[in-house]
Amino acid sequence: MNSIVKACKSDLAPTVLELDVNNHAGVMSHVVGLFSRRAYNVEGILCMPVGDGSRSRIWLLVKEDERLEQMVRQVEKLEDVLGVQRHGAAHEVFERLEEFFQ
């Protein structure tokens, strides 16, 4: 487990969510709003456009508490979210960023 993931608050296991989304100005707000209004902290977030730029991929690093399943189902309901995948903390996407957070 790298230092970024280890720096997450609390003892709960970290988990990585991968969201394929439409790429427009409101999408990020829709996604993070679901978490913030449930007082569910998003520890890490990474987003870049994919393909022709009409879509983006959002990577979220969150703690796996008992609400995670409910959160995933809420995310799946968002009209601009095209798909959600869950990965373990071992996923390398945040690990590669380590040098930017020294």
């Binding site: 100005a25 409101g26 707000s29 829709h30 709003g33 209004r37 968002l78 009209e79």
Partner: peptide
């Protein structure tokens, strides 16, 4: 748009 995100099923600008 921002105000209506949490109280709509979906919204558009």
């Amino acid at each position: 748009y921002g105000l209506s995100i949490p109280i709509t099923k979906h919204n558009f600008l």
